[in-house]
């Protein structure tokens, strides 16, 4: 079966974020971008399913400006087979992303859409569910284990209270949690070879998807952080502080 892996590039979480003066967005000039951590896990899982002989081909899709190509090439170097970049310079909300993914899905003969449960920039945790709802496909979100057997996916999900294992028919949508796997690094020679893998550029128009948004960011702000308190010398002092100052205990 073919697996579609939608990916998003996000600012490296290790950089110090700065807001634009108008507060409409973060400062992105010259920052380091990475493949969204959860999407990297999705790419890795697809590769493992291919290594097991369950998956025949891994197709990546992303929507964004031209330089997202570099992140897609990274995922190709990890082991994906081909990539589709739906070029769009404007803002993308999860609804628009889900409409793009749904259209790309319909054009291929995919057995699974495998993607990160959340993007570490917007932290929304909703695109997989939106895609599944749009396509009326079964969904298994927050996966920490994925098995594929005779027409079904058996997925263990991280839920409140513990773990839940469900069995859903293919085609389906699976979103990845952190504990699913540890992604491999793309080796340097593979990065060179990745540039030769099939890479298709599409437009929203070509897919028949409108650029309309349902969600608009009005402004961003940095929350006032907590102030560091003080060090206590020992357990007695800690207890005294909790009882005396914090009025706990």
């Amino acid at each position: 079966m073919k697996i579609l892996v939608p990916v998003k590039r996000v600012p490296d979480w290790q950089i110090k974020l700065k807001l634009l003066p108008d507060g409409k967005d973060i400062q992105t000039d010259g920052i380091k971008w990475i493949l969204n951590t959860f999407d990297e896990i999705a790419v890795e899982e697809a590769i493992r399913l291919k290594e097991k002989g369950v998956c025949s081909e891994i197709v990546l899709v992303s929507v964004g400006p031209a330089d997202v190509r570099a992140r897609l090439e990274y995922a190709l170097a990890m082991g994906a087979d081909s990539a589709i970049l739906v070029k769009h310079d404007g803002p993308v909300d999860s609804d628009l992303a889900s409409r793009v993914i749904a259209e790309v899905f319909k054009k291929g003969d995919y057995g699974m859409i495998l993607l990160g449960k959340q993007a570490i920039d917007s932290d929304a945790n909703q695109t997989a569910q939106l895609v599944a709802g749009r396509l009326n496909l079964p969904q298994a979100c927050f996966a920490s284990k994925v098995l594929v057997e005779s027409g079904s996916a058996v997925v263990t999900r991280e839920v409140d209270g513990g773990l839940e294992t469900i069995k859903i028919p293919i085609p389906c949508v699976v979103s990845t949690d952190l504990r699913l796997n540890e992604p491999r690094y793309a080796a340097l020679p593979n990065l060179m070879k990745a540039k030769k893998k099939p890479f298709e550029e599409l437009s929203l128009e070509a897919l028949g998807v409108s650029a309309d948004l349902k969600v608009r960011v009005k402004s961003l702000s940095v929350p006032t952080g907590r102030k560091a308190g003080r060090k206590v010398a020992n357990v007695q002092e800690l207890i005294a502080a909790l009882q005396g100052e914090a009025k706990i205990l």
Binding site: L130, G133, Q139, R157, D160, K214
Partner: peptide, 23 residues
């Protein structure tokens, strides 16, 4: 936004063609 709220409600948004905001 419990695990089932996070799981089911964006799917509802797709069914209603609604704007979704999480958490």
């Amino acid at each position: 936004a419990s695990s089932s709220g996070k799981d089911a409600l964006p799917r509802v948004a797709a069914l209603l063609d609604a704007a979704q905001a999480s958490d």
